[in-house]
Design a binder for these strands. Structure first.
Lengths: 345, 345
DNA sequence: ACGCCGGGTGTTAGCGTTAACACCCGCGGG
DNA sequence: CCCGCGGGTGTTAACGCTAACACCCGGCGT
């Protein structure tokens, strides 16, 4: 900076002023400084700046170590939103979701002096770990928790993590209503692991839709997120469907489960959607080419990322919290149709 | 730090020594300092440290803005490897792959004073943009380029980007040889976009395997990575297969293409693997539950991430470059079998 | 007995930037 | 004519840390 100052014939402080867009610098002076900067290829030292301003310009993002569709898409959307705001994004992944791991990651970020943290917290224990730590910087948590309940409250603890998520419950209602609207008497649900907010909320939305329609609420079938589990469940259901007491429609907790179901049904000789209708959740790449193409719920991750960044900046500026829910949409494809008389073959 | 020093009854420099594991500190003193640190909840200021050591402890990772399976898995593996080495990971995504965008991202990282950069460069133009910029810090590029050619050379420019990748060509040979070994006379290939190294290398590997086996080398079919394209190609191939002049085996450039093929074949009434065998590439989640379960090539991303980090650390220390290729494995499932007489239905 | 050595510690001087203040100068108003 | 004001600029002092050096002291070799 001293070199630039010398070359431009000004003091280093004037160079600093130019760099920071300070108003009271004469245009001619500014140009001279700018020219000198370009000439020397000068680049300001971010560490020195951070030292004196006490701002790192970095936010930390915690995500799970899985390559699952949702978390990944969220991370990418987040990075883009952050860079648009002039922030650097530092990421850390957690494989295990216990509190100790979360604490280590948060320490990692505090050591880096991040100005805010975004936690992609799909599971309850991840969220609990965040709650119990309360880092000294604002935290935004992407977790489909308390969205419905918390939306009205204004008396939140300002240091509590702020919430944003795609409204999983609304998505599940969309899927269930779609099936009911086609004429299915009820809908069976294959739920994801119930330590995931997404699974809890999708289950709740499914139940709400059934209750609202006055339909029977069958027992949900608990599973993981994997296609393996969908396959196993599908084989059991296929037997029931053949026996005549199976569901005419199934709402799978995600597209992987739906994929497993489809395969099991296909292997059993059941026709989808005639013998049984199937809806998934996520709209993963390729779901339009499952056999048959899968009706599913699409989540707007880009919007989620931007909303998250907005929330974080508000928190950094000390503005009050307001949970944000983002509406998913239904993608109707060939795996759903009105119920048909079952044809034995 | 001064507070800690006062509480421990030492000088701030001794505190610094304890923090940096300097050998000549008496154990009792060290314990006293450690206790004071814990007591005060002291955390060293990373900016001040970076200012004086001229080391930021951060590496930058450039990745594409897509949620594609490969790049995403790589990023996660990389973060883990980096954190194990005590580095922070800053990410930046690029949506468009032109040189100007790449330059902006690299400037972003230089502004952050990263010590090294990893570019996940699946496309040729991304790699070209890196080549043309030559940042002042070491760069490792994850690109399946010149792996075979460059492996032997030792006279590389030390400032040139270092290469590491999963050996796509070997993976394609694995897939093709598997099909030939089953008795297929030749194998058709649906290639991904040829501005991707992966597509180029998989195409080359497929061709090599055919030539090595003395098999006919049919024209490759060019496509994108999408299941949509796989479906379109599949419909055309299905017609040929029915007409009797179609392939008995297809090697798809990735699992998405394979998924589209499977659906097209299924809709046309062709049986996989009896009428036509299909192999994919990637082993994406769910490929074990495609209809039928897909034989595919699995890429060891964890290993890739660690190798990448090793390479970067070597570059930072100024050690010579050596391109690294990582061997993928074949996952044999139900979509492949020896060729059968085709049965019309 | 003396000097030398080396482990253990303190003191001092930056690292490159911004904040705070001091300063100069030309202008308008009393 | 002088004073006050404010835009434009320079000077100085941090920010919190580590490197380099200075220093002390006990033990060892000569």
């Amino acid at each position: 900076m001293a070199d630039v100052a010398r070359l431009a014939g000004v003091s280093h402080q004037t160079v600093s002023r130019v760099l920071n867009d300070h108003p009271s610098v004469r245009p001619t002076t500014r140009d001279r400084v700018l020219a000198a900067i370009a000439d020397l290829g000068y680049r300001r030292n971010i560490a020195a700046r951070a030292l004196v301003t006490r701002r790192s310009g970095t936010i930390g993002v915690v995500t799970t170590g899985s390559a699952l569709y949702g978390p990944t898409s969220t991370l990418i959307a987040l990075e883009e939103a952050a860079r648009d705001e002039g922030y650097y994004v530092s990421v850390a992944t957690i494989r295990r979701t216990d509190g100790a791991t979360m604490l280590r990651v948060l320490e990692h970020f505090m050591g880096q002096a991040v100005e805010g943290i975004v936690v992609i917290a799909p599971q309850t224990d991840v969220a609990a770990a965040v709650d119990s730590f309360r880092p000294p910087v604002p935290v935004v948590m992407i977790a489909a928790r308390e969205l419905a309940d918390g939306a009205g409250r204004g008396t939140e603890d300002p240091t509590a993590p702020r919430l944003v998520a795609v409204d999983q419950r609304a998505g599940a209602r969309l899927a269930t209503d779609h099936l009911l609207g086609l004429g299915h008497a009820s809908v069976r649900h294959v739920a994801g692991p119930l330590d995931w907010f997404d699974a809890i909320e999708r289950l709740a939305g499914w139940r709400e839709a059934l209750v609202a329609a006055g339909a029977e609420v069958p027992e949900p079938i608990l599973a993981t997120w994997s296609a393996d589990d969908g396959y196993d469940v599908g084989r059991r259901l296929a037997g029931r469907i053949f026996a005549g007491d199976g569901p005419s429609a199934v709402f799978a907790g995600n597209d992987q489960l739906a994929l497993g179901l489809l395969r099991a049904f296909w292997e059993a000789g059941l026709r989808v959607p005639d013998d049984v209708a199937v809806v998934g959740f996520d709209d993963v790449a390729g779901s339009a080419h499952f056999i048959p193409p899968l009706t599913t719920v699409r989540q707007p991750f880009g919007e989620l990322g931007r909303a998250c960044m907005t929330l974080l900046l508000e928190a950094i500026e000390g503005r009050p919290a307001r949970p944000v829910a983002i509406a998913p949409t239904l993608e109707v494809r060939a795996s759903t149709a009105p119920p048909q008389r079952r044809t034995r073959r």
